[in-house]
Nucleic acid binder design. Structure first.
Lengths: 358, 358
DNA sequence: ATGAAAGCGCTAACAG
DNA sequence: CTGTTAGCGCTTTCAT
């Protein structure tokens, strides 16, 4: 009923507890016969060492446990990242605790506290908005932290991000290059670092052409499908509506594409063959992007590379690297399919009088 | 530098270690002044209880840690499931260790061993193929196990699955109902339980119409995008090619849609407005399914429901439920969009006269 | 090559 | 109300 302990194994093998410890730890200096006897007892009892008890005494090697704290494990980007971090950990005989913050600082603190209370060797963290000073004490007592996806505003630690600004700039430049000048920006909460960066990239691209953003075309804070639909509806009702759209994350892209299909039809929808009413480029690639009509042009980032880079950084810290914090910035790639190439000079897509050309 | 212990707090507060323990555990019977003194010392030192040490002594409450072992954390289905399990765990003040097996029995054993060695209270497991007898000893010593997505072949434990067979049957019946009789089956490894079930559903639907499967139209063991493309190419080269397709998971659906686009074009592809050459219904919903042309009809399962059901089952076991193992089977839903409705009696899909409207 | 003693950080079971 | 003594399962250190 209860799990066997070293004591039980020792008794079964007729040796001392210490000898069992040596065998189980593959320590040298035990006679082959004894090893055999002990190993047999181990198998017979189904003994497995209690790693937590071990870690209590032997802290030289750490707990071989790391924590991964993301916004939302269900988000494909973080899921891919998590998998690649888990792979790196597994290679090193390390396990990983995961937690989602839901972008709530409070939940973030709870999750991190639960992890550090279990003596994790380190943390890969997608920080929420707000201060992370509370991590200082944990870090002082040896918990290593690597930030991913975005930096923690007040923490100078290893950080792996992608060049969001550059990615957005390219996306919007692409749209501009295809004749669009009224390009809407659809973004998530402006408080999120990646969103600020992407918006900055949007502005960069405009000003490189001598344009400035029309406030009427800029929408921050889109948190849901519904809000995105609404925002898009308002944009289209404008006297001078946008001809193109830059959506700053996958969820918003999804919402926008859905909204473009027209009225609220739960399952099936857009009339076959009818072109999308606006050009669109989105941040983040999506599985069926190239099967759309027209195929969707996106800024793609590599979550697997982000994850493995972060994991490697973390493990080298755990292994003793005490050099200055590194800031790694990975590149994005503009995957040009065709949704960004619709002509920018026509917006006729509704029955009824076409909007004035240009 | 080192983490403070209760001893340090006791010293700082001028009380005994035991008093600190009581305060930290919110035990009654400590005078308010003492509580205040201790709490202040705790804050001052940034003390946090070592949960592992605590669990070593007090095993009444378990470790408040569960393990989640899935095929692949990056798979959207498992990612969603993982998130919902993590939510349930978080509600209960429990943390979760995750691991991917990659469908390799060996890695599964490694991951499970690493988890049980850390004294997890229970395991939510997507079992690989093969025996799981090795879990018996862990279970005998109190580790609870709940299987999800598929049953473990030789383990009588709580299991949460969806009705794969029924889902597949409906999908294929839908295709049959639209005039198709030559329907190809594209599946992953037949050794995987879900795949066998879905194939059985495919056969069910055919025989309900008095048809039997044409072996030439059945392809098992599709493990990659490439293999799927190849398989589809072969099917189309048949003298009497299929007019419709049932793909038995999301990856295969993706591969098939990709292959239908024609030659190997890395990024963008299909000519706008050109209809898909075959009808298709896939198992598992996909984010952009309804934005496709035609919108993709799928069998959808609810990973969040699967996850939360499994988590609830596990936690009630941990809480002491010793009733007979439960087998929960959730339903799937056929989301009828339009890809299953192309006429089954024509296969002309190349440049030439446009397909009849609707 | 093996074992005995001490102690990791904490709580259970008793004292006072 | 508070403190003392064991001891969880293991490893360290020091014998033998």
């Amino acid at each position: 009923m209860k799990r066997p302990t070293m004591k039980d194994v020792a008794q079964a093998a007729g040796v001392s507890l210490m000898t069992v410890s040596r065998v189980v730890s593959h320590n040298p200096g035990v006679s082959p016969d004894t090893v055999a006897k002990v190993e047999q007892a181990v198998r017979k009892l189904g003994y497995q060492r209690n790693v937590n008890a071990r870690n209590l005494r032997q802290k030289r090697l750490g707990t071989a446990t790391i924590g991964l704290v993301v916004d939302d494990l269900a988000n494909p980007f973080y899921a891919l990242m998590a998998r690649s971090i888990e792979d790196e950990a597994h290679r090193r005989g390390c396990v990983v605790l995961v937690g989602s913050t839901n972008d709530e600082p409070r939940r973030e603190r709870e999750v991190i506290a639960a992890f550090t209370a279990r003596q994790v060797d380190g943390l890969v963290l997608v920080p929420t908005i707000g201060s992370h000073g509370f991590l200082r004490t944990a870090m002082a007592s040896g918990t290593h932290v690597v930030c991913v996806d975005r930096p923690a505003e007040d923490l100078d630690v290893d950080t792996v991000t992608v060049d969001n600004r550059d990615g957005a700039r390219h996306a919007v430049a692409h749209l501009l290059g295809h004749g669009h000048s009224r390009i809407a920006y659809l973004g998530d909460r402006y408080e999120i670092w990646t969103q600020r960066e992407r918006y900055a990239g949007y502005l960069d691209a405009l000003s490189a052409r001598g344009l400035s953003a029309d406030p009427a075309l800029v929408r921050h804070g889109l948190r849901s499908h519904l809000e995105t639909r609404l925002a898009l509806a308002e944009l289209r009702a404008l006297p001078d509506p946008p001809t193109a759209l830059f959506s700053s994350n996958d969820l918003i892209t999804l919402g926008a594409l859905d909204a473009m299909d027209g009225p609220d039809d739960p399952d099936g929808s857009r009339t076959a063959g009818q072109p999308l009413p606006m050009a669109i480029v989105g941040f983040d690639d999506l599985p069926l992007a190239k099967q759309l009509d027209p195929p969707l042009t996106v800024v793609s980032q590599d979550p697997v590379a982000v994850g493995s880079t972060a994991a490697n950084l973390l493990f080298s810290r755990i292994a003793g690297d005490r050099s200055a914090p590194r800031k790694v910035v990975l590149l994005t790639r503009l995957v040009e399919r065709r949704s960004g190439e619709r002509p920018g000079h026509r917006t006729d897509h509704r029955p009824g009088p076409p909007t004035a050309p240009r």
